[in-house]
Measured scan of single mutants.
Amino acid sequence: MALNTPQITPTKKITVRAIGEELPRGDYQRCPQCDMLFSLPEINSHQSAYCPRCQAKIRDGRDWSLTRLAAMAFTMLLLMPFAWGEPLLHIWLLGIRIDANVMQGIWQMTKQGDAITGSMVFFCVIGAPLILVTSIAYLWFGNRLGMNLRPVLLMLERLKEWVMLDIYLVGIGVASIKVQDYAHIQAGVGLFSFVALVILTTVTLSHLNVEELWERFYPQRPATRRDEKLRVCLGCHFTGYPDQRGRCPRCHIPLRLRRRHSLQKCWAALLASIVLLLPANLLPISIIYLNGGRQEDTILSGIMSLASSNIAVAGIVFIASILVPFTKVIVMFTLLLSIHFKCQQGLRTRILLLRMVTWIGRWSMLDLFVISLTMSLINRDQILAFTMGPAAFYFGAAVILTILAVEWLDSRLLWDAHESGNARFDD
């Protein structure tokens, strides 16, 4: 018995066209964080690309023209004298008006014999932002004059995390709450300039795509075929072959399989920071003279006294001054041990922890910024005066060393310790 099946006739004509040209192939790229070699397709503007294995951002879609970056830099340069030299806060102490600005706080630190601690604050609040705007201006002028731009481009990517104007702005709020127990506070004209400078700096850093600047100024022929001998440069993120001198053909720094002496430098910085954190938390970090009496505060006791007036601000200072430094030390110690013992479990967790400490590390400088600003506000000789204690130097040095330890660690070593050939990683 035959089955009668109805015929289905399409209502619209289906047209099949042959592909007349070869589909576009992607360029081969190595991930600078996990060293995976993959094919990167062509990316349009405002599109980002991520590593298929570790999800690290390979290409950032946010990109401004150099002219727009230069305009932002010149605007920031105009704001800087007002943000640093004009009063941020006014207080009335014992019937006398006192003005506080950024430069005055750094000068008070240096004047009291601790120039190293003052230079830490100076670099993060004044030096690094000033280098940022002058570097962008150098790129703008240098591109037109045919100057060598490689050193500036190499420095810009590392400079971003040292620009800490946003953290200093939080420190202004913390210092205001600490001082309000002794005097009446009012915002100064410099505060508005400083807030504007923070906003412009944040926007500029978020749109400063150094890798795209490398592509514009020093374009290189990408690798179009897969080759395990391809290496990625950690300076400019170019994937290719080393030249005859073993250097990256684009930025001219040595092109090595792994960062040289990464573990040794990381261990040295980490152990030194552990040693410095002990006096930083045991010795007094601030000293207040009130009517001839002397009151010393460690980091913890200062947080407890701050909690009596504002528990939320005390929580912020606790996280930045105690929780973050010790968390960074514990995480980095764990990561280094996992590399030495070739741990194969929990790779995803370790990668996330490394990215976390990379982002939060700079916030530990908050305590030094609060001390710097408070020193310029309260300084009335023996009637009422505020000065920093010996722990300030140890704390600042420990924070900087932990930042350097994270920067010096080559994250690809975590993958080397893991089993080879993993296309995915999980716990």
Score class of each variant (00 low, 15 high):
Asp114Val: 04
Ser420Ile: 11
Asp27Lys: 13
Ile177Ala: 09
Val174Arg: 00
Ala223Gln: 10
Asp181Met: 03
Thr327Leu: 13
Met76His: 04
Leu354Trp: 06
Leu40Asn: 10
Met388Gln: 12
Phe123Gln: 02
Ile19Lys: 11
Ser420Cys: 11
Arg144Ser: 06
Leu409Lys: 07
Gln55Lys: 11
Met72Cys: 09
Gly146Asn: 04
Arg97Tyr: 05
Gln180Gly: 08
Lys13Cys: 07
Leu270Gly: 07
Ala183Arg: 00
Ile319Glu: 10
Pro129Cys: 06
Leu323Thr: 15
Ile106Tyr: 12
Leu366Asn: 09
Met388Glu: 06
Ala56Cys: 11
Val399Gly: 07
Leu3Ser: 13
Gln220Trp: 06
Gly61Ile: 12
Lys328Ser: 00
Gln180Lys: 07
Leu230Arg: 08
Leu139Ala: 02
Ile58Thr: 06
Gly361Ile: 03
Ser364Gln: 00
Ile185Glu: 14
Gly421Cys: 10
Leu257Trp: 15
Arg362Ile: 07
Pro325Trp: 07
Lys13Ser: 11
Ala391Asn: 03
Leu290Lys: 01
Thr15Met: 12
Leu230Pro: 07
Asn379Lys: 08
Thr402Leu: 00
Leu373Tyr: 05
Arg412Asn: 00
Pro32Cys: 14
Ala18Phe: 07
Ala268Phe: 01
Cys236Asp: 05
Pro10Lys: 07
Arg97Pro: 05
Asp427Lys: 15
Pro219Trp: 10
Phe217Leu: 12
Leu377Val: 05
Leu347Val: 14
Ile288Met: 02
Leu255Asp: 02
Ala71Glu: 01
Phe74Ser: 15
Glu86Asp: 10
Thr239Lys: 02
Ala183Thr: 03
Pro242Gln: 14
Ala391Cys: 08
Asp381His: 08
Leu414Lys: 02
Tyr168Pro: 06
Gly346Ile: 13
Tyr218Asp: 06
Gln244Glu: 13
Trp214Phe: 13
Thr110Ile: 04
Asp410Thr: 00
Ile91Ser: 01
Met388Arg: 04
Asn4Cys: 09
Gly113Ile: 14
Thr11Lys: 08
Thr239Ser: 09
Gly146Arg: 08
Ala71Asp: 00
Asn310Met: 13
Tyr218Val: 04
Ile351Ala: 13
Asn101Ala: 04
Pro151Ala: 06
Leu165Ile: 11
Leu208Trp: 07
Ile116Lys: 08
Arg68Cys: 03
Ser206Asp: 05
Lys111Ala: 08
Leu353Gln: 06
Leu93Pro: 01
Phe141Thr: 03
Gly292Lys: 09
Phe369Leu: 03
Met80Gln: 06
Leu78Asp: 03
Pro325Gln: 03
Met120Ser: 03
Pro284Gln: 14
Tyr182Gly: 06
Ser305Val: 07
Gly95Ala: 04
Phe386Cys: 01
Pro87Trp: 06
Thr327Phe: 13
Ala391Tyr: 04
Leu197Ile: 04
Leu130Thr: 09
Thr387His: 04
Thr202Ser: 14
His252Gln: 03
Ile322Phe: 14
Ala100Asn: 08
Gln244Gly: 11
